[in-house]
């Protein structure tokens, strides 16, 4: 189990280690600047955040909700501090309130987000989970996602913490429960096995 660190906590003496994500270098050592789990290797140290809003990054796939259409572009809520800007080419029949799976084309230095290639999502259910937990929902090389999709449910995961689920009522409910479990147990080990047990009905999801 990795150690939980808080902002300002000293992670290593001296400045030899490379200061990775969530850390900074001061005169006498490397410190954390985020509340999260410490990842210490021989040559580098970083902190994986446990909380926090989604920060848009170029190349990410996110699920957005269209807030407004103005001229030939849509303003899309991507659950971040910043709205996404999606130019439309006239063939996209999108309106406010639509849910889309989009790519982030670019993010500039003042975090202006440009989106591209929207894919409209119909029906189904939209679920919001903390974006910092998404890597666990996807799993190592998509292993967790594969596990969740075994039930035949249509599942899209946006890097911004939105999950789109479509299928029959029972499967959707079960998938939702599994996702809640992942969020709750995200910082623990052996997560894939726990979820596997749950989906195969050997656990009721209450055990910690």
């Amino acid at each position: 189990m990795r150690e939980v660190v808080i902002p300002g906590e000293k992670l290593s003496e001296g400045t030899k280690l490379h200061a990775g994500q969530g850390t900074y270098k001061a005169d006498d050592g490397v410190y954390a600047n985020t509340y999260g789990l410490m990842n210490k290797r021989e040559d580098a140290v970083s902190v994986v955040p446990l909380e926090g809003k989604y920060m848009p990054r170029e190349g990410d796939k996110v699920i957005g909700v269209i807030e407004a259409i103005r001229f030939e572009a849509a303003f899309v809520d991507i659950r971040s501090a910043y709205n996404g800007y999606l130019p439309l080419d006239g063939r996209d029949r999108l309106k406010a309130g639509d849910v889309v799976l989009v790519d982030i084309a670019s993010v500039n230095e003042i975090n202006k987000v440009d989106l591209e290639r929207p894919m409209k999502l119909y029906e189904g259910k939209l679920m919001d989970i903390p974006s910092v937990k998404i890597p666990r929902v996807v799993g190592h090389k998509g292993s967790m996602l594969e596990l969740l999709r075994k039930s035949g449910v249509t599942l899209f995961v946006g890097r911004n913490g939105r999950v789109y689920i479509k299928g029959d009522t029972e499967t959707v409910k079960k998938t939702e429960e599994a996702l809640n479990m992942i969020v709750e147990l995200a910082h623990t080990d052996g997560l894939t096995d726990k979820i596997k047990d749950f989906l195969e009905g050997e656990s009721n999801g209450n055990e910690k």
């Binding site: 808080i6 902002p7 300002g8 969530g22 900074y24 410190y31 600047n33 985020t34 509340y35 999260g36 955040p49 446990l50 909380e51 926090g52 809003k53 910092v132």
Partner: peptide, 10 residues
Amino acid sequence: ADAGIPMKDM
């Protein structure tokens, strides 16, 4: 800190 906002220290 709980909101995940980066800070130099508390």
